[in-house]
Amino acid sequence: MFEARLAKGAIFKKILEAVKDLLTEASWDCGDMGITLQAMDNAHVSLVSLNLRSDGFDKYRCDRNLTMGMNLGSMSKILKCAGNDDIVTIRAQDNPDTVTFVFESENGEKQSDYEMKLMSLDLEHLQIPETEYACVVKMPAGEFARICRDLSQFGDSIVISCSKQGVKFSASGDIGSANVKLAQSSNVDKEEEAVTIEMQEPVSFTYACRYLNFFTKATPLSAQVKLSMSPEYPLMVEYAIDDIGQIRYFLAPKIED
């Protein structure tokens, strides 16, 4: 028996919005420690790694490790049926063919359940090596989304450069070029609005706008986003999910031949 109950059911709705355009299907791995999902997009340019800790759920029971292959478009359709204030429970038997989503209104007067067929997926699972990043930038998630959207108008790539002076986002194309520079916040009243930079060495890498814009679908999950960069390593874009976990996106850089 597997059962995971989350009073803040809207978190599941936001998670699906954050992955459904990038991934068509994925396996949800459930165990004692919680729920994880790892999947690459079809082109194998990016990788999504989601982690939801069991202690972040209001109720969590997992008698036996299980892997549930789901079509994320179908799962998204079902979660759209949940109200923003609904309590969401995900339930499955051991060795399941189906998974059940139960939505309860706050006052307990409405309860709906949706059963979805599971898929047998044979997906590659990649080892993500530990690394010390050369630069780690933390900034408001809304600001990052805005910059990615704005600069996408100029070309299909964004160069992210990070130095002691700050972080710079650049794009260029047929209509011209654009640069957005953010300095480290000097005086921060609200932590959520701060820009902070931890730098071991300056870096500058080129990334595809298309994927950065997919990642920013996670913006409603978190006030801040963390961008981590190192030579010979994919960009990591991380959004914390309340006190339950995080979603990390890895993006392979564009490389000069």
């Binding site: 990788l47 990649l126 080892q127 850089p253």
Partner: peptide, 14 residues
């Protein structure tokens, strides 16, 4: 133009 690399260039198949 720079070439798009792949995630599997960096992460190893488990």
């Amino acid at each position: 133009a720079p070439r798009q690399s792949s995630i599997s260039d960096f992460f190893i198949n488990r």
